[in-house]
Amino acid sequence: MTASSKKKKENKKKDFQKPKLKVGKARPKAANSTDTSFRAKAIALKQQALSTSAPTLEAQCAHHLGLLNHKSDTQRKESLAFLTSAITSNPTTDPLPQPSSVIIPAVQRLILDGSNNVRQQVLKLLQSLPPTDIASHTDQLLLHTRAAMTHLAAEIRVFGLEVLEWLLGVAGDEVVSCAGGWVKMLKCFLSLLGWQNEASGKWSTAKSYGKADSKLQVKQMNVLTSFLRAGLFYAHVVSSVLVTDSNFPLWQTEHHMLSGRSNVYAHLNLFGAARDEEAEMYEDREDRQRVFHERAEAAIITGLEQATKGGGELGRAAAQLRKAVKEGMTDFYREEIAL
């Protein structure tokens, strides 16, 4: 036997030797045991709940608002669900556990969340909030909605349409009149539907990367229809101030009252950056009609022609849209045609 093989054998033997146990002695430590003891001068407990009473609803809500940044989507969803239930169970006479001005900014970016469950829960939460509060946060919500509508993932694009639909239902007038709300949304819709504004070529372009199927297109067209209805039709006149004879010597009192809306002078843009035509606010129906005519009408009409030819569900949606455009633009004074 060579020296090396002998040595190897000895080594092997050493590996499998059984440790001898002795009575009255501490058990020998295993070869792979890890020493977990440590020494410290002081041990500080970072937090200690000393209160015996349960936290208030407000505190709980604040905690869950903080959890909205959590990396686990289940946790996010659950926090949203908690907030939703807290708001819905709240009696209407009481103020909300946390004001909407706190909830909405924290929640709105979850519109772009990657998980479908979270997104659906966000919509539920938003629906549970009082509509008057939504109206004052329309511009920020609309920004996120638009981001969702142009998102790379198709799911989020669909969800963006859902949010917009709801938003139009709750605060349609604010949506179309807020900064960038009209022109940018129109542009967004046009690019989503693939209806090119400038007739660059008569050739049909190939259905390109990431284009949606006709179902999505139908949905888009439906939402566009309701968007145009909100923008081009007369708003329902809401007479908040009671017109009675009681304040007889005063006429048109409602014009002299302080407005109920927040940020009344937003259109003056006193503090923000200078706006271009796209980001401008279009508060009048006439303004919107003019801009619509200039920027989108031609593209929509040509796009509609193709869509109507498609027939089926797509054709029906196209017909609805055509009707909306026609009705909205009936009283628009067309210089081009007159000439």
Binding site: R146, A147, T150, L152, C188, S191, L192
Partner: peptide, 8 residues
């Protein structure tokens, strides 16, 4: 479309 997303 992506550029619009960026702008938003």
């Amino acid at each position: 479309q992506q550029y619009q997303q960026y702008q938003t």
